[in-house]
Nucleic acid binder design. Structure first.
Lengths: 210, 210
DNA sequence: CCTACCGATCGGTAGG
DNA sequence: CCTACCGATCGGTAGG
């Protein structure tokens, strides 16, 4: 009995479509782990292939270039990040509640050091305008700032924000604090991240909440 | 006439001691530039040598391993950083004044993008415990936190700090904000860093200054 | 002509 | 400090 014919029903042989999706997921998982420790520049395609249990050329078949692989890894990170954020709070909180939900999201991140390491390591390399993840980093920061800005504007419309509050600076500060706390947490300088971020939100409320 | 003998007076030939120090400084300057863009892992000894105008083995003569070179580059960064911090304020301010002086120091850093890039890029790689700059990164963060803690304790002794202020979290937040703002500034998400940091200090004062 | 790979090797470069 | 090299590994591609 021939295997891999062009007939529509295949009682034996490899289920091709499903295998491809599962294989890609395997690759993305091990690549994320390697990038998170050694960075994009410090990780070779061969090492990713070996960790995924396939050949180098097998890896290239799924991701033609190393840049393609990085892009897929970071897209997957964002998807998992968003999925977890939504799982925590069914509907997205608004106004100051959004800030407190963000603290909870950071507390959740303390259970996922691999994700935090991936973000921090790749961000460090990606400040170089020539780095393949530079556009991703800018997009990520701008999207995060935008969501914070929306929350502050909701607070303002509800009369809960001082009219002279420096909106943009506050948004950027929260993003900066989250990024910087990750570095300190990963190196052991800080025991956590959420309590520190909560301290920032508390100070903001003391100064600019109405 | 022989060149480079061990006699004390050399009317001709290369003044060796001076040359060595100057050459090392040249190497450290170009290495800092390369590390700041491509990172430690993304920079080769050969490329450093070429940029410094010497051979690969000539570079190895001054810095036996790549790790030695990185250590010297980061030590030099810290020296220049400290020198500029002292130049700004003759004596180190105390209490809340120290926080405001730090904002001024960050404003000064906006004139030195290369230094900021070096710090951010190497920090990103160095969260890996196996990275040669991991110890440097931890030392840097702990020293910065210690100086901030001293300042807050001076404020407390002067009765200018609420007794329930979360000292450690505040110190780590300031360090995190400085690090994170550097990333956003380098990628163009934020137009500056000092105004944002000043916003953090203002919020802290509103919440915990007495 | 398709898919999901394989073993082998391309021209160059890495740190030392 | 140079020329001349090493063992190995880089990202990417060949034909089958």
């Amino acid at each position: 009995m021939p295997t891999g014919t062009s007939t529509t029903s295949r009682p034996s042989g490899r289920p091709r479509g499903a295998d491809t999706a599962a294989r890609r997921e395997d690759i993305l998982r091990v690549a994320a782990e390697l990038f998170s420790v050694d960075g994009y520049r410090g990780t070779s395609m061969s090492r990713v292939a070996k960790a995924a249990g396939i050949s180098h050329t097998g890896l290239v078949h799924h991701f033609p270039t190393k840049d393609d692989l990085l892009g897929a890894v970071m897209d997957r990170r964002d998807e998992l990040d968003t999925a977890r954020a939504f799982a925590d709070a069914g509907a997205r909180p608004t106004g100051w509640d959004y800030l407190h939900a963000m603290v909870q999201m950071v507390r959740n991140n303390e259970e996922h050091p691999g994700m935090v390491r991936l973000f921090t390591t790749v961000s460090g390399e990606a400040v170089d305008p020539e780095h393949p993840a530079n556009a991703w980093l800018r997009r990520h920061h701008e999207a995060t700032v935008r969501r914070l800005r929306n929350a502050f504007q909701q607070a303002a419309e509800a009369g809960q924000l001082a009219p002279d509050a420096p909106l943009d600076a506050m948004c950027r500060l929260i993003v900066a604090a989250m990024d910087g706390l990750q570095t300190q947490w990963l190196t052991g300088t800080a025991p956590g991240m959420a309590d520190e971020l909560a301290c920032l939100v508390e100070a903001f409320e003391a100064r600019w909440r109405r």
